[in-house]
């Protein structure tokens, strides 16, 4: 009887829930580079796509990924209206280098500081780089772990799909 009850409850749980593929973003309060508090649950882009890229100053593939996206960002914005949030998981050891580094490479992303990994853990990120694409309703429609040269082609394809 207990087993049936357990199975019933679990079945109800799965029927009543969404998973990450159609989930909105968890609500965690993070700081941006100007010291403003930003609630991640309220990230919006006027109905246009959002990309969330987890990175760190000590993560070489992360910087390669974001440096590459930076070359295409203007073009992607014009085509699809996408907005990129680059969320750094640098802790107190390296977080003070984030703003000087970001400015030195002229990234035009919205940078958020996730110093104790609350947001990255809530998003199920194991290790950076981990990239999410959200549609205009804030639902995750694509995600990718790691970065290989050429991944920007796949990202572009996914963004164009959202435009259609």
């Amino acid at each position: 009887m207990k087993k049936i009850l357990l199975l019933g409850l679990i079945a109800t749980l799965f029927l009543s829930m969404n998973t990450r593929q159609t989930a909105s973003i968890p609500s965690i309060v993070l700081k941006d580079l100007d010291g403003n508090s930003i609630d991640t649950g309220k990230l919006t882009n006027d109905g246009k796509p959002i990309m969330i890229c987890f990175w760190a100053t000590w993560c070489s593939p992360c910087k390669k990924e974001l440096n590459t996206y930076a070359e295409y960002y203007e073009e992607w914005k014009e085509e699809t209206g996408v907005k990129i949030y680059a969320v750094t998981i640098d802790d107190q050891r390296t977080v003070n280098s984030v703003k000087p580094y970001v400015n030195s490479v002229s990234w035009d992303y919205d940078i958020l500081l996730d110093v104790n990994k609350s947001f990255s853990q809530a998003m199920g990120v194991n290790m950076p780089p981990h990239t999410f694409i959200l549609d205009g309703k804030g639902e995750v429609i694509w995600q990718h772990v790691g970065y290989n040269a050429g991944d920007e082609e796949e990202v572009h394809e996914q963004l164009l799909k959202l435009k259609q």
């Binding site: 003070n96 280098s97 703003k99 580094y101 400015n103 002229s106």
Partner: peptide
């Protein structure tokens, strides 16, 4: 004690 001072502008950063 921990202190950090940083200055940055487009293309340049120092900390």
């Amino acid at each position: 004690i921990f202190m950090n001072l940083a200055y940055s502008m487009k293309g340049f950063g120092i900390t």
